[in-house]
Design a protein around this nucleic acid. Structure first.
Lengths: 171, 171
DNA sequence: CCTTGATGTTTCAGAATGTCAAGCAACGGA
DNA sequence: TCCGTTGCTTGACATTCTGAAACATCAAGG
């Protein structure tokens, strides 16, 4: 236990703000997905597959859910012609889920319409954005040089985060 | 369209970081709720009711979902003795959902165990936290003096954000 | 070759969340 | 009193999720 207690008004407010960011992010994501008649889960998987085919297992790990769950989601994407299953030639147990041409196109359009952070971020200057970046990084306890690579679900639309800059020190 | 394009590496990184924050927040929230055998939705409603009774309609507005959905969630809370329904004496159409004593106790314990932002935030100094607060506020386009009052879902644990401080200028 | 165990996926049952349309109850004014 | 509106619930249905069981495939060891 550090001295930072929940009752600290500043901390409470930051927590509140983060909660608001989270809520708004979800709203944006869901409604962006709905624009293409996709659910949030389907959009996430489709975005993930936009970077390339993946075994069901990997998708489950990314989404942090059971593989059996992924089966249904990919089923629905497949039924709509946005994804397909291929059997990994090297190991026939593995089913690779892959976006079809239409799936890639939809993922691209979806990504473009996810304006959540781009639009409100436009109110911040480059300098402020850099500060925000550094603070968020520290908050997440990220390795300054480390990318979000494959550490977990990004919830972003299949964009490889090109991190790699140094932390300039937000102080 | 401003000049802030998605391809701007800095913006992309901030968006990525926000995505990570969102993902981690949800994880924390779900697992904190699960510790008390609650689902995320139930925890949200219970937290909301911790501040006082609310008409079903208001809860639905807060969660941004259909009122019929709230019926089920409150049903389950009620079945477990965490909430109850009262009829508004002033308007007998209105059903006020209210947390029971046990409901309040659970909400309190739940709130205490939601360490998400408190723990990682402890890596930031007071000054940095203030900067983060101001940047997030600006990002959200919030009225500087405005609280999160009843503007929308906070996704926080029923804590009345005691905003009202001035923005010190994050520049 | 053939068992044995581990791994990847699917299927099934069941719960929860969510939408929508229809229904019922109560309010409020004409 | 009648009527339109509002608040909540119910029912049918889709989706997401878990957990257990089934199935196929691989990889070794006998």
């Amino acid at each position: 236990m550090t001295m930072t207690r929940r009752t600290d008004p500043l901390t409470v407010e930051v927590v509140d703000l983060i909660g608001t960011v989270v809520a708004r992010y979800h709203q944006e994501y869901e409604s962006a997905a709905a624009r293409y008649k996709l659910t949030g889960a389907q959009a996430k998987v489709l975005a993930l597959l936009n970077s390339g085919p993946l075994p069901m297992r990997q998708i489950a790990r990314w989404l942090r859910c059971e593989p059996s769950n992924v089966t249904g989601i990919v089923d629905r994407l497949e039924a709509r012609g946005l994804a397909e299953r291929r059997t990994d030639p090297a190991d026939r147990r593995i089913k690779l889920a892959a976006a079809t041409e239409e799936g890639h196109a939809t993922a691209e359009r979806l990504r473009d319409s996810l304006d959540f952070a781009r639009e409100p971020l436009s109110g911040l200057s480059d300098r402020e954005r850099a500060v925000l970046r550094d603070l968020l990084r520290r908050m997440l306890g990220e390795d300054p040089a480390g990318g979000t690579g494959t550490t977990g679900p990004d919830v972003n639309l299949g964009r490889a985060s090109d991190a790699g800059r140094e932390v300039t020190g937000a102080k």
